[in-house]
Design a protein around this nucleic acid. Structure first.
Lengths: 214, 214
DNA sequence: AGCTGTAACTTAACACTGTTAACTTAACGG
DNA sequence: CCGTTAAGTTAACAGTGTTAAGTTACAGCT
């Protein structure tokens, strides 16, 4: 006995080596900029070895994404949050923005790239909807808190719709920043200013009594 | 005489043929999905012929983008607009959304893809800032109208910052729709609902007297 | 009329890419 | 000790963007 387990351990170690190498290259060079051959070179394997562990390039990077989604949810969870529901949403937005700024290539692959539709497997299904590991679920939870506390205008009762709006607003700032920040056609204001402005405007537009928003 | 002109005309016709073929393929298959060889095949030229007219693939599709930017500005110009500055901004947002929905591949290349920085040439400089051909300039103009009419909160005086916020908000809805609409993790509300919600929320957040916003 | 230069275009090739099929090699289980 | 299996390799395929060198046709000049 024990052999099988050692084998499995070794295999998952190689798998992790591939993922780590891919992540490092991917973060600096982006999805298109990294080839399977370069990933293989980095870990001193032949390019085809990767295909023992991942069906194709898409799947390899999809796995990295899953890790990043989880990391994002972790960040949400760990950053201490205000008890005020609106302030909590503001801080969630700030945390999300920081994530996008710190890992632009991950962000691009996670939220700005079209992927072929991917049926969720059983592992995914465990994560989905759990605020501790699913970032979107966390946002929805925070939104629901604000609804329950009566802080939004009374016609705004759909937590899903509000979450999607809040997400889109912050995503708009980050993704335009990633794709267009060096575009000379626009005299861009500093990112931080744009992010704060966006959060201020959308939260004001949502709350029942705009005067009370600091 | 006249020969030179005929030659020039022929050349610009071939150039247009390339652009038309590229556009057609690009619209349906996206940037990565189209190869120079396929574009060439479509017009029955050798692949290298394209390089007589365009330095590389990037430049070819950049030219298409410029055309699309211009078309967007045209749409803004031609769609009849309310005289109310806030309603005008709302309609501008709607028009922009329609554009993104109708031409998702163009939209992706124009606003969701990182391009190597591109020094504006003299032709670009003519367009830049002219609301009739520069869509961003149009937005800025519409925002300035709202500021001048005293419709925004008094601390909001930076037309550039407000424009960037409004753009980002609508862009957020469209780009998430393009990249993530078939993602089973999110129970997406209909796009139209999300777009209307976003415009409602951001405009409410901007105006001086939220009650007056219909 | 015949030579020359040039612009438009093609052929062939280079250095890549993702991916597959067929092979080797090493190690465990019976 | 032998057979099976899994991990990893080599070689190849079909495709990519792009370039260097070559062809061809034709306007302009002597």
């Amino acid at each position: 006995m024990g052999v099988k387990e050692r084998r499995e351990r070794e295999k998952s170690e190689t798998r992790d080596k591939i993922l780590d190498a891919a992540r490092e290259l991917f973060v600096t060079e982006g999805y298109e900029g990294v080839s399977m051959r370069r990933v293989a070179e980095k870990i001193e394997y032949s390019p085809t070895a990767i295909y023992v562990y991942f069906a194709d390039k898409q799947e390899l990077f999809h796995e990295l994404c899953q890790q990043d989604y989880a990391r994002l949810a972790e960040v949400f969870q760990s950053s201490e949050m205000s008890t005020d529901p609106i302030e909590r949403l503001r801080q969630t937005g700030r945390t999300y923005t920081e994530f996008g700024v710190r890992y632009p290539n991950h962000y691009k692959f996670m939220f700005m790239t079209t992927h072929p539709p991917h049926e969720p497997d059983e592992e995914d299904r465990e994560v989905m909807g759990n605020p501790e590991v699913d970032a979107y679920a966390f946002l929805k939870w925070a939104v629901q808190q604000a609804i329950d506390a009566g802080r939004f205008r009374e016609e705004l009762q759909d937590a899903e719709l509000i979450s999607q709006t809040l997400w889109a607003s912050v995503h708009g700032v980050i993704s335009l920043n990633i794709a267009k920040c060096s575009d000379p056609w626009v005299d861009w204001r500093p990112l931080e200013q744009r992010a704060e402005m966006m959060l201020d405007v959308t939260l004001r537009g949502l709350v029942r009594n705009p005067g009370e928003v600091k």
